[in-house]
Each structure stands twice: as C-alpha cells, then as structure tokens.
Design a protein around this nucleic acid. Structure first.
Length: 362
DNA sequence: AAATCGTGGGG
DNA sequence: TCCCCAAGATT
C-alpha cells in the first residue's frame, strides 16, 4: 500500500512530534556545532556533513572554526588556506562554494546569514537540504531538511517504497515533512529525524526495540523494516591507469602542479602525473613525453617505487609511482612550482598524493 | 535524469 | 575483498 493520499492514515502527527522531540532532547549527542545556534556555525557544519560521517567531521570542524571563526574571517582568507583546512575531507568544491557564498553574505548582508529560506537557497553550495537545515536549526523556521536519514526513517514510518536514490523522490518527503513538522520546534524535529536515523533507525539492523517512535512506524508493524528504504545501486568506479612522479632537483626540492580550477580535485596541488594507456609497459616513457610536451620539463625517470590505488565515487586511479631527476632549469609557470619539504606543508593535496609524499620523506 | 564530485570506515 | 554507506549540490 503506497498511495500518496493515505500515507498518513491512522497517523498521529502530534504523538509523533512529541515522542520524537522529547527523545531528541534527552538523547542527542553533544557535538561542537550544537554549542550554539550561530547561523554561520550551523552552515559550516551542514556543508561539512554532506555525505560525510559525524566522526570524520568533528576534528575538521573544530580546526576550521578556530581558523575562520566568523564569516568575515572566512571571506578574507586565501582560498588555498581554506582548501588546506579541507584537505582530506573530500568534495572540495564544498569548501570553495562555501567561501564564495560567505563572501556574498559579507558583501550583501553585512556578514550575517539572512533569515529567509529563499535567500539562503540562493547561496552557492546550498541546496534544498542545507537550506532547510539552516532555516530550521538557526532560525526556527518550519522548513523541511530532507537528507538520507530523513528519507530512510520516513520510508519506514510510512512504508514508502519510492527509490530514494532518485532525485525527485526527495520532493515527496519534503511534502510529508511540511505536513508533520512541529511548528513549535522545527529545529528539534528536523534534527530529531536525522539523529534517529543516525543512532536508531540505521541502514542495517535498525534498533526498533529502542525506537521512540516505534508505535508510529508502519514498517515495524509489518515487520519489513529491513526491506526499507528502497535504494537502487550505484555503478562501480571505472579504473584509470596513471603514472605519477616524485621529481627532484639537486637540492631535493619537489616539483608540484596545481590542478585546473574546475573538475576533479579542483585547485588542489599534485605530483606531476599523467593517464597512461595500454596497460603501461612503457608507462615511464609516456610520463616522460607528457612532462616534456605539457610542462616543458626535461627529466630522467628513475625507479618505479610503488603502486597505489585511489578510489573516488566514480573513478579508480591505479597509480604507478616513479622517482626522477630534473635535468634542466625550471621554467616558471603559474601552475608549476618546485618546493622544499617545509614549503609543502601549506599546499593542499589529494589524499593519494599526500601518502606518496609522506612515504618519500619517511 | 544521470554524472560528477572524495574519503574512510564497517559489515 | 568488496560493497555499501555518510547531515547533497551542481551540471
């Protein structure tokens, strides 16, 4: 049974709100972004938490708020410092969009996030979920904040079998939340749904016996909580062979390259590298040609010191790592530098290249 | 609508 | 080992 007209048949909205909110008030975790309701702090936390686990975010969040405690601090920072603070968190466009949006808030709104969902939604990097999260948590506005937790919880509560991997499904849940959200405490209601999804109504083996809204849950009543939500599978990442090189001069400085300002790992720095073809019997020759043709670097390729895997959501890099020596004078370019070990510390790198560099100096 | 965009951890 | 997963947004 999944007709939209009776998804809430026999459902007590008031009872659900009361049970959810009182559970949240008693059981919520102590988290750094819950210390106060500063909209900027809420905003930063919501961006970091996109597709990222709470335990991963906490140390990044604390460091980030120390470096950039207010919108003005972040607006005035160099982008490279922001990316360095984000290094290892992934989805780096989040950091760049956040800074661009914060600069807009400083310029257009005097540094304070506007108390208006429509204006919030227009900020770069702020989509439907984050709009609702900031609006409800920081400003107590009864806006839906539908993330993966909310879709999973409500799929079970109302026995909804729509595929939550499809973009349009989110809208269905937003309409449901608009109906059942507490107007008195939208912040605790939205956070309660997410906290419930994180602690009780988990993807696998949900703890229904501990659930504060068990008596409201249709999936539990039917014994189908393990079958929900319905979620189609993603494609496996496609493999890509590449060669990277630790390229040094006589003084043991390392050549690094800045990636393009759009696309994968945008504006991060990396070791010189190149996609290689045909399995790579002559990988080092392909790399040498690339360094010469694209970077005008004359090099002697040395030993093949390691193979490394770097898995993204949609790509799997198989990296052959070489060492090499720079033969000629270094040709200056904006996206090409030669730096020493100490200077490397201020450049943001993808995790795989961090690991290569760390192993070289170990 | 489907791809793109990271990373680390758990079953 | 592999697959799935996590407080999504953008193109």
């Amino acid at each position: 049974m999944n007709k939209e007209e009776n998804w809430y048949e026999d459902f007590s909205i008031e009872g659900f709100q009361t049970d959810l909110i009182s559970w949240f008030e008693n059981e919520q975790r102590i988290l750094p972004w819950r210390e106060n309701k500063d909209p900027y702090r809420v905003w930063v936390s919501e961006i970091m938490l996109q597709q990222t686990k709470v335990d991963t975010v906490i140390p990044y969040y604390n460091r980030f708020m120390e470096l950039f405690p207010t919108t003005k601090h972040l607006a005035e920072a160099e982008e490279e410092r922001v990316l360095k603070a984000w290094e290892g968190l992934g989805y780096y466009s989040r950091a760049r969009n956040l800074q661009a949006a914060v600069r807009e808030v400083v310029e257009r709104y005097g540094g304070t996030v506007p108390n208006d969902p429509e204006k919030i939604a227009n900020l770069k990097g702020v989509g439907p979920y984050t709009t609702g999260a900031i609006s409800s948590i920081a400003y107590d506005l009864p806006e839906p904040a539908v993330d993966g937790n909310v879709m999973r919880v409500l799929s079970r509560v109302f026995f909804i079998t729509e595929d939550i991997a499809k973009q349009k499904t989110r809208k269905l849940f937003e309409e449901i939340v608009r109906t059942i959200i507490s107007k008195d405490n939208p912040s605790a209601f939205n956070q309660g749904l997410m906290e419930l999804g994180a602690l009780i109504c988990t993807p696998k083996s949900p703890s229904c016996l501990l659930c504060p809204v068990q008596e409201h849950c249709k999936a539990f009543a039917e014994g189908v909580e393990d079958e929900l939500p319905i979620k189609s599978k993603k494609k496996a990442p496609r493999p890509l062979a590449m060669a990277a090189i630790i390229l040094t001069d006589e003084a043991d400085n390392i050549v690094i390259h800045r990636r393009p300002e759009s696309g994968l790992l945008a504006n991060l720095w990396e070791l010189p590298n190149h996609e290689t073809q045909n399995g790579g019997a002559d990988q080092h020759e392909q790399l040498k040609s690339f360094l010469h043709d694209e970077y005008s670097l004359h090099v002697t390729i040395g030993e093949h010191i390691a193979n490394l895997e770097h898995i993204f959501s949609h790509i799997k890099w198989n990296i052959a790592v070489y060492v090499g020596k720079l033969n000629k004078q270094f040709a200056m370019r904006d996206d090409l530098r030669i730096v020493n070990k100490k200077e490397l510390e201020k450049y943001p790198f993808p995790v795989s290249h961090q690991k290569i560099i760390a192993s070289y100096y170990r």
